[in-house]
Design a binder for these strands. Sequence first.
DNA 1: TCCCTGCATGGTAACGTTTCCGGCCCACAA
DNA 2: TTGTGGGCCGGAAACGTTACCATGCAGGGA
Lengths: 354, 354
Amino acid sequence: MTKQGKHPTLREVAKCAEVGTTTVSRVINGVEYVEPWTKARVERAIKELGYLPNIAARVLKGHKTRTIGLVVPSIADPFFSSCAEVLQGIARQHGFLLIVLTTQNEREMEREAINTLTQHRVDGFVIAPADAESDELRSLLMRVTVPVVALDRPVAGAVVPSVVADNFVGAKHATRHLIAHGYKRIACLTGEIGLYTIRERARGYQAAMAAAGLKAVLSTAICDYASCDAAIAKMLKGPDQVQAIFTLKNSVTVDAFEALQRRSVPIPGKVALLGYDDFQLAGTVRPAITVVQQPIEELGKTAAELLFRHLKGASAAAMPAKARTRQQVLLKTSLIPRASCGCRPDPSSRGSSS
Amino acid sequence: MTKQGKHPTLREVAKCAEVGTTTVSRVINGVEYVEPWTKARVERAIKELGYLPNIAARVLKGHKTRTIGLVVPSIADPFFSSCAEVLQGIARQHGFLLIVLTTQNEREMEREAINTLTQHRVDGFVIAPADAESDELRSLLMRVTVPVVALDRPVAGAVVPSVVADNFVGAKHATRHLIAHGYKRIACLTGEIGLYTIRERARGYQAAMAAAGLKAVLSTAICDYASCDAAIAKMLKGPDQVQAIFTLKNSVTVDAFEALQRRSVPIPGKVALLGYDDFQLAGTVRPAITVVQQPIEELGKTAAELLFRHLKGASAAAMPAKARTRQQVLLKTSLIPRASCGCRPDPSSRGSSS
DNA sequence: TCCCTGCATGGTAACGTTTCCGGCCCACAA
DNA sequence: TTGTGGGCCGGAAACGTTACCATGCAGGGA
């Protein structure tokens, strides 16, 4: 119960147990060749002084931090916070610490995050790039000497392995689903079109429409409820009144749903709705909203496993950018048919992703 | 563009710039007394070698990590991930790194998390304790030598300052609101009754009921949809059929809403519903759900500010547990009246908390 | 002329750990 | 008796940075 402001050091433990520092180190790290009674003495001293090793010193000496990083746009976003939770768990069971950094999808913050991780000498990290096409990011990543895995969005040029959901196919299938319901005039409300995921989904939508010989109607200027409502208002009037709406992002789906409800537009009677990405109440709301579900857990898990595989593989030799396997993992999405697209409500699928 | 597996060191920069290590250090840390041209040479060398300081060495030398910790039950929980985002932002603008650790509300993981933070010698941390009453936690916290702030849940004995929402009053007001609507038989569905926040809310409910001379009906065995549905089924039959339901937790609110809808019970016609904690679609769903809203942003912000104030105050002298101010910040919650409690739907309040 | 002050710079000792290396002791074989 | 080898242990040199001190130099006042 000795107490002061400073932390006891290994040397103090050694003195207290009347052994050398080497022996204490051996006990801490569970190395062989130390007598049971010596070990007991050391352990008693450790307990007595409340000793906890100083990670900084260990890192400085050993060049291994047992720490990985995660760089995401936002930690408040349920998608990324779920990924973070998964990563955290896997890191923990490998005895690793996870450092999460956010970028708000800004280049500068992303650069800063990578620098921070490098300064902390993390053993590797997972990143959801703000912009897949950024040359700066690519060159930044090229000069990183630890394993990196891209999550949710690949890096152009594939300088790093990536684990992403198949946004293109997911959106294509979803659009086809609407087409199969007999809708002809299907509009698509996007989110930030600058984002890789949104662009891919838009491409999938366009591909499906083109394949069916239908005209694609893309509305890209949706940023909040007002703009979403305005876009929908426009789509509702005139002879080419829209029959179905495909939203590419959670918040847009919610806004569209709200707007349609407020305008008392029957869903799916008058206009059908299908959203990309499942969310908490999508199945509870009336009508329940049909969505494309992303394999969030699997994304996180796969990214983590990939990273740790590289971490183990590269344990001896430092890993030059060239040698990194250019692996691209593409994960399947699934369509959860509920009521809003015109399918009969299926009472068994009240599922939210949680 | 020189490239190899290892990181360049400050000494190598010094050699490259043909100056002493001290000078390089001074340039990096922006200290006075260095000629502009010398500084330029050093900066060129830094850029050329791609030098980034080794944090571990800096920490080892200086005893300051510029790192704070956050210990929460789960990072996937929107409440805590929002807190984390706020903390992250404030830490960043102080030039601090944030390390987030999760406990799943388990004692053992909590202990481990605190140890991890201590080993990393964080300058302070914020914690949402798994169990407010735990003696072990209290003693663990007593021997921590850095500032600590409790978030969302206080620590019994007030060994650390805490920032919590007023769960008791929030629940009391909510219950009164239901009473004011004329409901007599008001049931309360709790979540994990072991949690401080839930207990406080339950107390608030009971207090309001008692004050109105009404009988409190507490159902504490709700853990999933099935149990929630069963509880509601029971409340719906018999002569003492319940008139209003007060749910103390997000997931329970959603389950209750779902159950009532499935059973085609008119809300609020037959049974009114009021939930604790706002959530994304609470205002969009029909009927829109009346909820008690917690000041999430403010909780995080206040905790962060408190922590940094103590961090600055304790910069010189290490802070013994005794000297920590026993500050208790209690933040007000607010009731968002929507349709499910019997209030007329207010079209202006479609608000979700985001 | 000499000393003192103030700026600019460099050498070097820590910080707390791990790890290489070498030493001790004892049993056993020659 | 002496060599030998293996189990146990400790001294001390790193790891990369900061900060204390020393040094050198220029200019100004006595």
